[in-house]
C-alpha cells in the first residue's frame, strides 16, 4: 500500500548527493539522540512508577561532570554538522567558472526564462545534461523564490537585485520548479517544469524554437545603439562615460573612493540608478534608464557588456576575482551571493 508514496526526492544534480549525504548524517545523529532520550524517559517512567503518590525520589541534586559532558558532546557534534554544512553551502552558492548563463524574471505569477541564444520560455526551463548552468534572476514585483527540489537549489528573487542559482543536471527528465516565497493569490500556481535534455537535443531545441530578435548579446547591442549609450561610452575611453571594453569582472574605483567589482548587479544598478555609484573621474551626467528599458532589456545589455570583456579583456578582468574569490560585498544592495565573476559565457 505504501509503495506508491514517494519518501525521498529524486537526485538530479551534482549538488543533490552532497546535500543528501549531509542530510542522512544529521538524520543519523538526531535519530540516535531521539531514541536514546525517548528510551531513557520511557524506561525510567515505567521502572520508577509509583501510583501511591506517597513515596519520595532519591535525594539526587545533580552532577557537574554530567552537565559538562552533555553540554560539550552536543556542542562538538554540532560543530561537525556546522562545518560539513558550510562546506556544502559554499558548493551550492559558488558556481564553477564556466557556466551556461540563463536569465530569469519572476513576476506574479510566472517565471520567464531567457537563454543567451535568445530563446525565451515561460514556466519551463530547458537545460542540457552534464553542463553547469547558472540562472541569474530578479523579480519585477514582490518577493519570489526560484526552487528546483530535484537539484536541491533555491534562492529568493528580490525586486531591485540579482540572485542566482547554479546546478549541473545529472539525469534527463522533467522536474518541478516552484516559487517558494509566498507572493499572493496564485503563489501555488507559480510553478513550472525543468526539462533536462541530452546536449544534442538541447542544441536542437535551441535552434528549433524559432528565435526572434537574435541572441541576448545581439539584442543588447541593438539596445545599446537605440538608447544612445554609444554617444558617451566610447570604446577608446575618450567619451563622457567610461569605456566598457574589458570592464566586466574588473574592480573600479568610485568617486567617493570606494571600490566595486563590476558584476551583473553593478551593471544593472548603473543603468537604472547611474548616480548612486559613479566611477571616479566622470561627471554625473548619465540619465536614469528606469522605465525606458525593462528587466529583460537590462539583462540583454548585461550580456552585451559581458561580451565586451571577451577573450581580449578576460585576462585583465579576471585579476580581481581570482585574487579574492568570493570577496565580501562592497555594496550591500548588490546581492551578496552575486559577488563572483565568471568571465564571459562561451
Amino acid at each position: 500500500m505504501l509503495s506508491g508514496i514517494p519518501l525521498f526526492p529524486e537526485q538530479a544534480s551534482t549538488l543533490a548527493p552532497a546535500v543528501d549525504n549531509l542530510y542522512f548524517f544529521i538524520l543519523a545523529v538526531t535519530a540516535f539522540f531521539a531514541l536514546l532520550v525517548s528510551a531513557l524517559v520511557i524506561y525510567f517512567a515505567i521502572k520508577y512508577r509509583d501510583d501511591t503518590g506517597l513515596k519520595v525520589g532519591a535525594p539526587i541534586t545533580g552532577s557537574v561532570p554530567l552537565e559538562i559532558g552533555w553540554s560539550i558532546i552536543p556542542f562538538l557534534v554540532a560543530i561537525v554538522i556546522f562545518v560539513w554544512s558550510t562546506v556544502v553551502f559554499f558548493q551550492i552558492i559558488r558556481p564553477p567558472d564556466q557556466t551556461l548563463e540563463i536569465y530569469s524574471t519572476g513576476k506574479r505569477w510566472m517565471w520567464r526564462f531567457q537563454h543567451a541564444d535568445g530563446q525565451r520560455e515561460i514556466n519551463a526551463l530547458h537545460v542540457p545534461l552534464g553542463r553547469p548552468v547558472k540562472v541569474t534572476f530578479t523579480s519585477e514585483d514582490v518577493l519570489h523564490d526560484l526552487y528546483i527540489p530535484a537539484f536541491r537549489v533555491k534562492a529568493d528573487a528580490i525586486p531591485g537585485r540579482y540572485s542566482s542559482i547554479w546546478f549541473t543536471a545529472t539525469k534527463t527528465g522533467e522536474y518541478h520548479l516552484f516559487c517558494a516565497e509566498y507572493c499572493g493569490t496564485r503563489h501555488s500556481g507559480m510553478i513550472g517544469t525543468v526539462y533536462v535534455m541530452e546536449p544534442n537535443d538541447y542544441q536542437a531545441w535551441l535552434t528549433d524554437g524559432g528565435i526572434t530578435g537574435g541572441s541576448m548579446q545581439a539584442r543588447g547591442e541593438q539596445l545599446f545603439q537605440q538608447l544612445a549609450c554609444t554617444t558617451c561610452h566610447l570604446t577608446n575611453g575618450t567619451g563622457r562615460g567610461p569605456s566598457l571594453s574589458g570592464v566586466f569582472g574588473s574592480t573600479v574605483t568610485l568617486s567617493d573612493g570606494r571600490t566595486v567589482t563590476v558584476d551583473e548587479s553593478y551593471v544593472r544598478e548603473s543603468i537604472l540608478t547611474p548616480q548612486m555609484k559613479l566611477v571616479a573621474g566622470y561627471q554625473p551626467l548619465m540619465p536614469t534608464f528606469q522605465g525606458l528599458v525593462n528587466e529583460e532589456g537590462v539583462m540583454s545589455l548585461i550580456e552585451y557588456v559581458k561580451s565586451l570583456s571577451g577573450s581580449e579583456g578576460t585576462a585583465q578582468a579576471r585579476v580581481a576575482p581570482d585574487a579574492a574569490p568570493g570577496a565580501a560585498p562592497v555594496a550591500a544592495p548588490a546581492g551578496a551571493i552575486e559577488q563572483r565573476n565568471e568571465g564571459r559565457t562561451q
Binding site: D256, A331, A332
Partner: peptide, 9 residues
C-alpha cells in the same frame, strides 16, 4: 544606519 551607509549623498 543602513541607508546612510548605502546612500551617503
Amino acid at each position: 544606519m543602513l541607508y546612510r551607509v548605502w546612500y551617503p549623498e
